[in-house]
Design a binder for these strands. Structure first.
Lengths: 119, 119
DNA sequence: TTTATATATGATCACTTGTTCATATGTTAA
DNA sequence: TTAACATATGAACAAGTGATCATATATAAA
Protein backbone atom coordinates (compact mmCIF):
# COMPACT_ATOMS: atom_id res chain seq x y z
CA UNK A 1 0.00 0.00 0.00
CA UNK A 2 1.36 3.37 -0.90
CA UNK A 3 1.43 5.98 1.77
CA UNK A 4 -1.22 8.58 1.19
CA UNK A 5 -0.23 10.80 4.07
CA UNK A 6 -3.05 9.65 6.29
CA UNK A 7 -5.23 6.63 6.88
CA UNK A 8 -8.33 6.22 4.79
CA UNK A 9 -10.35 4.78 7.60
CA UNK A 10 -12.75 5.68 10.32
CA UNK A 11 -10.50 3.73 12.66
CA UNK A 12 -8.28 6.76 13.26
CA UNK A 13 -8.76 7.70 16.88
CA UNK A 14 -8.46 11.44 16.46
CA UNK A 15 -9.22 12.45 20.03
CA UNK A 16 -6.60 10.10 21.39
CA UNK A 17 -4.11 11.37 18.85
CA UNK A 18 -4.73 14.98 19.85
CA UNK A 19 -4.33 14.17 23.51
CA UNK A 20 -1.15 12.19 22.97
CA UNK A 21 0.34 14.82 20.68
CA UNK A 22 0.80 17.23 23.56
CA UNK A 23 3.13 14.86 25.37
CA UNK A 24 5.62 14.58 22.53
CA UNK A 25 8.78 16.58 23.27
CA UNK A 26 9.48 19.58 21.07
CA UNK A 27 11.25 18.77 17.83
CA UNK A 28 14.30 20.79 18.90
CA UNK A 29 14.74 18.68 22.03
CA UNK A 30 14.12 15.36 20.29
CA UNK A 31 17.48 15.40 18.56
CA UNK A 32 19.36 16.11 21.77
CA UNK A 33 17.38 13.39 23.48
CA UNK A 34 18.16 10.88 20.73
CA UNK A 35 21.85 11.81 20.78
CA UNK A 36 21.87 11.34 24.53
CA UNK A 37 20.30 7.89 24.34
CA UNK A 38 22.49 6.84 21.40
CA UNK A 39 25.39 6.85 23.82
CA UNK A 40 23.91 3.82 25.59
CA UNK A 41 23.48 1.89 22.36
CA UNK A 42 27.03 0.63 22.01
CA UNK A 43 28.65 -2.12 24.05
CA UNK A 44 31.95 -0.27 24.37
CA UNK A 45 30.27 2.82 25.73
CA UNK A 46 28.09 0.80 28.09
CA UNK A 47 31.28 -0.68 29.53
CA UNK A 48 32.86 2.75 29.82
CA UNK A 49 29.85 4.27 31.53
CA UNK A 50 29.36 1.33 33.87
CA UNK A 51 33.04 1.45 34.80
CA UNK A 52 32.92 5.18 35.46
CA UNK A 53 29.87 4.67 37.64
CA UNK A 54 32.18 2.78 40.01
CA UNK A 55 35.28 4.96 39.88
CA UNK A 56 36.95 7.71 37.95
CA UNK A 57 39.51 6.34 35.49
CA UNK A 58 42.15 7.71 33.17
CA UNK A 59 42.10 7.10 29.42
CA UNK A 60 44.89 4.59 29.76
CA UNK A 61 43.02 2.61 32.43
CA UNK A 62 39.92 2.55 30.27
CA UNK A 63 41.76 1.31 27.17
CA UNK A 64 43.33 -1.42 29.25
CA UNK A 65 40.02 -2.32 30.87
CA UNK A 66 38.07 -2.59 27.60
CA UNK A 67 41.03 -3.86 25.61
CA UNK A 68 40.57 -1.30 22.87
CA UNK A 69 43.05 1.16 21.39
CA UNK A 70 43.84 4.45 23.06
CA UNK A 71 42.61 6.23 19.97
CA UNK A 72 39.26 4.48 19.92
CA UNK A 73 38.85 5.23 23.61
CA UNK A 74 39.66 8.88 23.17
CA UNK A 75 37.12 9.16 20.36
CA UNK A 76 34.46 7.53 22.50
CA UNK A 77 35.18 9.80 25.44
CA UNK A 78 34.89 12.78 23.17
CA UNK A 79 31.40 11.84 22.06
CA UNK A 80 30.44 11.13 25.67
CA UNK A 81 31.67 14.58 26.62
CA UNK A 82 29.70 16.19 23.82
CA UNK A 83 26.41 14.99 25.27
CA UNK A 84 27.36 15.86 28.82
CA UNK A 85 27.63 12.30 30.09
CA UNK A 86 31.20 12.52 31.36
CA UNK A 87 33.58 15.15 32.61
CA UNK A 88 37.31 15.02 33.28
CA UNK A 89 40.00 16.61 35.33
CA UNK A 90 43.60 16.83 34.22
CA UNK A 91 46.45 15.98 36.50
CA UNK A 92 49.64 16.53 34.59
CA UNK A 93 49.54 14.33 31.52
CA UNK A 94 46.74 12.19 32.87
CA UNK A 95 43.06 12.85 32.22
CA UNK A 96 40.74 11.36 34.80
CA UNK A 97 37.23 10.80 33.51
CA UNK A 98 34.09 10.48 35.61
CA UNK A 99 30.33 10.62 35.17
CA UNK A 100 28.84 14.07 34.97
CA UNK A 101 25.72 13.23 36.97
CA UNK A 102 23.68 10.36 38.35
CA UNK A 103 21.34 9.95 35.36
CA UNK A 104 23.69 7.56 33.63
CA UNK A 105 23.76 5.16 36.55
CA UNK A 106 19.99 5.30 36.88
CA UNK A 107 19.43 4.54 33.20
CA UNK A 108 21.95 1.72 33.13
CA UNK A 109 20.33 0.12 36.15
CA UNK A 110 16.85 0.28 34.64
CA UNK A 111 18.19 -1.20 31.41
CA UNK A 112 19.90 -4.06 33.21
CA UNK A 113 16.74 -4.68 35.17
CA UNK A 114 14.75 -4.77 31.94
CA UNK A 115 17.07 -7.32 30.37
CA UNK A 116 16.98 -9.53 33.43
CA UNK A 117 13.18 -9.50 33.56
CA UNK A 118 12.92 -10.43 29.88
CA UNK A 119 14.60 -13.79 30.42
CA UNK B 1 50.83 6.45 18.60
CA UNK B 2 50.24 2.88 17.58
CA UNK B 3 48.27 0.73 19.95
CA UNK B 4 50.52 -1.73 21.67
CA UNK B 5 47.79 -3.54 23.54
CA UNK B 6 48.50 -1.87 26.84
CA UNK B 7 49.91 1.36 28.21
CA UNK B 8 53.64 1.67 28.64
CA UNK B 9 53.34 3.60 31.82
CA UNK B 10 53.32 3.28 35.57
CA UNK B 11 50.16 5.37 35.53
CA UNK B 12 47.93 2.34 35.00
CA UNK B 13 45.84 2.00 38.13
CA UNK B 14 45.66 -1.78 38.23
CA UNK B 15 43.81 -2.14 41.52
CA UNK B 16 41.07 0.22 40.43
CA UNK B 17 40.81 -1.59 37.10
CA UNK B 18 40.40 -4.94 38.82
CA UNK B 19 37.73 -3.59 41.14
CA UNK B 20 35.82 -1.93 38.33
CA UNK B 21 36.07 -4.97 36.08
CA UNK B 22 33.67 -6.92 38.28
CA UNK B 23 30.87 -4.44 37.70
CA UNK B 24 30.88 -4.76 33.91
CA UNK B 25 27.93 -6.82 32.68
CA UNK B 26 28.68 -10.17 31.09
CA UNK B 27 29.52 -10.01 27.40
CA UNK B 28 26.40 -12.00 26.52
CA UNK B 29 24.14 -9.46 28.19
CA UNK B 30 25.94 -6.42 26.79
CA UNK B 31 24.57 -6.95 23.31
CA UNK B 32 20.99 -7.24 24.56
CA UNK B 33 21.52 -4.17 26.68
CA UNK B 34 22.90 -2.18 23.74
CA UNK B 35 20.06 -3.31 21.48
CA UNK B 36 17.60 -2.25 24.16
CA UNK B 37 19.12 1.21 24.51
CA UNK B 38 19.47 1.63 20.74
CA UNK B 39 15.70 1.85 20.60
CA UNK B 40 15.83 5.21 22.38
CA UNK B 41 18.40 6.61 19.99
CA UNK B 42 16.05 7.57 17.18
CA UNK B 43 13.65 10.52 17.18
CA UNK B 44 10.86 8.55 15.52
CA UNK B 45 11.04 5.82 18.13
CA UNK B 46 11.23 8.32 20.97
CA UNK B 47 7.98 9.83 19.70
CA UNK B 48 6.39 6.40 19.40
CA UNK B 49 7.43 5.36 22.90
CA UNK B 50 6.43 8.65 24.47
CA UNK B 51 3.06 8.47 22.76
CA UNK B 52 2.49 4.92 23.90
CA UNK B 53 3.36 5.94 27.43
CA UNK B 54 0.19 8.04 27.35
CA UNK B 55 -2.19 5.70 25.56
CA UNK B 56 -2.32 2.57 23.47
CA UNK B 57 -2.53 3.39 19.77
CA UNK B 58 -3.06 1.51 16.52
CA UNK B 59 -0.51 1.52 13.70
CA UNK B 60 -2.69 3.87 11.73
CA UNK B 61 -2.92 6.36 14.60
CA UNK B 62 0.82 6.25 15.06
CA UNK B 63 1.56 6.87 11.37
CA UNK B 64 -0.81 9.81 11.44
CA UNK B 65 0.67 11.14 14.66
CA UNK B 66 4.29 10.98 13.50
CA UNK B 67 3.47 11.75 9.90
CA UNK B 68 5.48 8.84 8.59
CA UNK B 69 4.44 6.03 6.23
CA UNK B 70 2.53 3.01 7.47
CA UNK B 71 5.38 0.83 6.29
CA UNK B 72 8.04 2.73 8.19
CA UNK B 73 5.86 2.61 11.28
CA UNK B 74 5.32 -1.10 11.01
CA UNK B 75 9.06 -1.68 10.66
CA UNK B 76 9.75 0.42 13.73
CA UNK B 77 7.13 -1.37 15.78
CA UNK B 78 8.66 -4.66 14.79
CA UNK B 79 12.06 -3.71 16.12
CA UNK B 80 10.45 -2.39 19.28
CA UNK B 81 8.69 -5.71 19.73
CA UNK B 82 11.92 -7.62 19.23
CA UNK B 83 13.50 -6.00 22.27
CA UNK B 84 10.39 -6.34 24.41
CA UNK B 85 9.57 -2.65 24.59
CA UNK B 86 6.04 -2.88 23.20
CA UNK B 87 3.27 -5.41 22.96
CA UNK B 88 0.05 -5.39 20.96
CA UNK B 89 -3.44 -6.78 20.94
CA UNK B 90 -5.40 -7.40 17.76
CA UNK B 91 -9.00 -6.37 17.42
CA UNK B 92 -10.13 -7.38 13.99
CA UNK B 93 -7.91 -5.70 11.47
CA UNK B 94 -6.57 -3.22 13.98
CA UNK B 95 -3.42 -3.76 16.03
CA UNK B 96 -3.29 -1.73 19.23
CA UNK B 97 0.21 -1.20 20.51
CA UNK B 98 1.20 -0.36 24.08
CA UNK B 99 4.30 -0.34 26.25
CA UNK B 100 5.32 -3.69 27.65
CA UNK B 101 6.40 -2.36 31.04
CA UNK B 102 7.19 0.82 32.93
CA UNK B 103 10.93 0.88 32.23
CA UNK B 104 10.46 2.83 29.03
CA UNK B 105 8.64 5.65 30.73
CA UNK B 106 11.23 5.80 33.49
CA UNK B 107 14.13 5.99 31.05
CA UNK B 108 12.46 8.61 28.87
CA UNK B 109 11.77 10.77 31.91
CA UNK B 110 15.36 10.58 33.11
CA UNK B 111 16.57 11.43 29.61
CA UNK B 112 14.29 14.43 29.36
CA UNK B 113 15.40 15.56 32.79
CA UNK B 114 19.03 15.24 31.72
CA UNK B 115 18.48 17.38 28.63
CA UNK B 116 16.67 20.04 30.59
CA UNK B 117 19.42 20.27 33.18
CA UNK B 118 22.09 20.60 30.51
CA UNK B 119 20.74 23.91 29.28
C1' DT C 1 65.94 21.83 24.19
C1' DT C 2 65.29 17.04 23.37
C1' DT C 3 62.88 12.83 24.54
C1' DA C 4 59.19 10.13 26.30
C1' DT C 5 54.56 9.61 27.15
C1' DA C 6 49.36 10.62 27.73
C1' DT C 7 45.79 12.14 25.21
C1' DA C 8 43.36 14.20 21.10
C1' DT C 9 42.04 14.48 16.34
C1' DG C 10 41.41 13.99 11.15
C1' DA C 11 40.74 10.79 7.37
C1' DT C 12 39.16 6.52 5.84
C1' DC C 13 36.42 2.41 5.51
C1' DA C 14 33.46 -1.51 6.62
C1' DC C 15 29.26 -2.07 8.81
C1' DT C 16 24.84 -0.71 10.57
C1' DT C 17 20.43 1.62 10.28
C1' DG C 18 15.96 3.99 8.91
C1' DT C 19 13.28 4.90 5.15
C1' DT C 20 11.01 3.85 0.77
C1' DC C 21 8.85 1.02 -2.72
C1' DA C 22 6.58 -3.00 -3.89
C1' DT C 23 4.16 -6.67 -2.42
C1' DA C 24 2.17 -10.09 0.81
C1' DT C 25 -0.93 -11.48 4.56
C1' DG C 26 -4.99 -11.28 7.24
C1' DT C 27 -9.62 -9.58 8.33
C1' DT C 28 -14.22 -7.70 7.45
C1' DA C 29 -18.07 -6.46 4.67
C1' DA C 30 -20.71 -6.80 0.53
C1' DT D 1 -16.10 -15.03 -3.54
C1' DT D 2 -14.64 -10.42 -4.28
C1' DA D 3 -13.40 -5.85 -2.78
C1' DA D 4 -11.53 -2.85 0.66
C1' DC D 5 -8.45 -1.97 4.08
C1' DA D 6 -5.09 -2.59 8.24
C1' DT D 7 -0.83 -4.35 8.95
C1' DA D 8 3.51 -6.90 7.87
C1' DT D 9 7.61 -7.90 5.28
C1' DG D 10 11.55 -8.18 1.81
C1' DA D 11 14.84 -5.71 -1.03
C1' DA D 12 17.50 -1.75 -1.84
C1' DC D 13 19.76 2.44 -0.92
C1' DA D 14 21.43 6.72 1.38
C1' DA D 15 23.09 8.33 5.64
C1' DG D 16 25.27 7.54 9.97
C1' DT D 17 28.62 5.13 13.08
C1' DG D 18 32.78 2.91 15.37
C1' DA D 19 37.26 1.28 14.71
C1' DT D 20 41.86 1.96 12.75
C1' DC D 21 45.91 4.37 11.16
C1' DA D 22 48.63 8.28 11.06
C1' DT D 23 49.64 12.29 13.15
C1' DA D 24 49.21 16.30 16.30
C1' DT D 25 49.26 18.44 20.86
C1' DA D 26 50.54 18.81 25.66
C1' DT D 27 53.12 17.85 29.72
C1' DA D 28 57.08 16.19 32.33
C1' DA D 29 61.65 14.54 32.84
C1' DA D 30 66.40 14.41 31.35
Amino acid sequence: MLNTGDCQTHFVHQKTIDRVKESIPKEENLYDLADFFKMFGDTSRIKILKALSISELCVCDLSELLNISQSAMSHQLRTLRQVNLVKFRKQGKIAFYSLKDDHVKQILDIGIQHIEEAL
